[in-house]
Design a protein around this nucleic acid. Structure first.
Lengths: 351, 351
DNA sequence: TTGTACGCGTTATCAC
DNA sequence: GTGATAACGCGTACAA
């Protein structure tokens, strides 16, 4: 066993240390670490090796301090939102492709949007990406106003704001779901309203217009309360399930604008002896990892996290690197969803 | 609508700008921003107000560069591990209480442990906290050796390594579960083996020793494959469910060392007409948010994320602030779990 | 409370 | 490829 060295002190090595170690100049080390032109391949190899050996990594703070422009993207996300982690993960390689680093900031119960933004501003991020942030219009407005860098919001946000919005085509996802159910022969398609969710109203409207276009009745199941986090979505779905069970007669299909809620509903129905899809067809939205489980196998519309991340990074980089003169209007970019039919939806029961 | 200013450039303000704006000295602003003594309450208020107004936040890089010691904790986590987000969230306020900032680094498929650690080292973190990192012994050893700061691993890791380990008392949680089931009258208690999970073997041993102590038979349900991520845990549970259903006779109770897997198993049983707890009692481990859903209501042992986070931060801070001479041996800290009886466990079926 | 001075580790730009 | 030098924004020490 190697000697115990936890708690080891000693200052971390600097570029000068690496240079001294190799008997070369400090700026040559800098060139290598930045992948800048001006060093031979052999030198690069030697420098990298020495850096590994000495445990050297360039001081990020010193680098951002000195650099003329920032090469850091600030990403604000909500750890409690399980469905969004894939977006966050996808950002890293995309940012790297453009030459940007990423700094994460978590939005939690004890840490408001303002504290998070201040942290990212402190890191002198070139742009801020908000992933699924619970946006309050007023708060956002003040915030964007205080921040001197472009802001891109993924999954929520007002149109025509001072920031760009990337969102999934929730309305079209709902339309696809309705068309799918109608093609299976469903007449009674209920919809669980989750209007407090970002994009909730949009998805509801997609359902409503699709149902009307196809000559079916709008049937909204409302659940009380504010549902903003994943934990609560499941509860909201469970509550909707109980509401449905109290009806004299179940609809033949239920559409839920969020997979977590759909799963909560599914479990509640199952616990009460209602089989899916034999008794009721169920369709969600998101394509949560859980939805793919064989025991759930939920028909849903997939939000492609990779595409959302790519759109967000692209927009941010374009804003950052835009000529100061060419101030384009902020916009809303809609990313299509993919409808995935699984076994939670089938032909309606008879009677 | 306010004028469009996205893509706005202009350098971010500095302390000097704030000072100039107020007609005071730069270091007075510094004093206020650091909460250091030497400014009147009135001045503090004015400075804070001006900082808000100008959108000023101290340049983190410049600050860490100048400071003699680092006041940053580097947190390495896996966004895909849903169960761990509460630990990450809890770290922020705890670190703040000790005066530390937090920098997050995500471990993803496209981003190895080494890249993440390098990022944190670049930020000159005073210590590294690994949350549920999938640790390979060799990799960890090399890593800890290269990093000059203390490393604390939560939830996994080898004893006697060069880093501190914080983990839950998984063995005792399993014992509590067995005792609970036995007290309900269960004779046949099966255990789903998830040995590839960090702490998996520990929990299995807890089950085995408890079952033997109480005079019951060890009954292990093994599922093939490597299960390290949440997504796979659910599948592993589902696979275990199928394995159980193939038996001529079900045990009266099943113990699963992970809630996600337990839920996968629960769903599989439910889909196949096996009722929980009427036909089979089910006990998990973790107290996932999902386990609390009324439709699932899983009996489990709660890993307290707050306690784990507190232990990790405390150990890290102690290591950081230890006198260079007093090099204490790295250790393993065990945090107790809380057994929570819910409705997924009940008296055994007859026959 | 202010002013002055210095240095943290790096990038950037010279001339060599 | 080297070497010299300036500058980034801030913390810290000291004298006024």
């Amino acid at each position: 066993m190697s000697e115990n060295r936890s708690g080891a002190v000693g200052k971390p090595p600097t570029m000068a240390d690496v240079a001294r170690h190799l008997g070369i100049s400090r700026q040559l080390v800098s060139i290598v670490m930045r992948d800048a032109p001006g060093a031979s391949e052999e030198t690069r190899a030697r420098v990298r090796e020495a850096a590994r050996e000495l445990g050297f990594a360039p001081h990020t703070g010193a680098r951002t301090l000195r650099q003329t422009r920032s090469w850091t993207l600030g990403v604000l996300f909500v750890p409690a939102h399980a469905a969004e982690h894939e977006i966050v993960e996808a950002i890293y390689p995309l940012a790297a492709k453009h030459g940007y680093d990423v700094v994460l900031s978590a939005l939690t119960d004890t840490r408001g949007l303002e504290a998070s933004v201040e942290e990212l501003v402190g890191h002198r991020c070139a742009a801020l990406l908000l992933i699924g942030a619970p946006l309050e219009e007023g708060l956002m407005a003040r915030l964007v106003d205080r921040v001197l860098v472009p802001v891109v919001s993924v999954g929520s946000g007002a149109r025509n704001g001072d920031y760009d919005v990337i969102r999934s085509a929730g309305d079209e996802g709902m339309r696809a779901a309705v068309e799918h159910l109608v093609s299976l022969g469903h007449e009674e398609i209920a919809f669980v309203t989750l209007d407090s969710m970002p994009d909730g109203p949009l998805r509801r409207r997609g359902y409503e217009s699709a149902v009307r276009d196809l000559g079916r009745e709008v049937d909204l199941v409302t659940v009380p309360g504010d549902y903003r986090d994943d934990d609560y979505f499941e509860e909201a779905g469970a509550a909707a399930g109980l509401a449905l069970l109290e009806r004299p007669r179940l609809p033949t299909a239920v559409l839920v604008p969020n997979d977590s809620a759909a799963i909560g509903l599914l479990l509640t129905l199952a616990r009460n002896g209602v089989r899916v899809p034999q008794d009721v067809s169920l369709v969600g939205f998101d394509d949560n990892p859980m939805s793919r489980l064989s025991a759930i196998d939920l028909t849903t519309s997939r939000q492609d996290p990779e595409m959302l991340a790519r759109a967000a990074v692209d927009v941010a980089v374009r804003r950052i690197e835009a000529e100061p003169g060419t101030v384009r209007r902020t916009g809303e970019l809609v990313v299509p969803t993919t409808f995935i039919a699984r076994s939670s939806s089938a032909e309606p029961r008879r009677g």
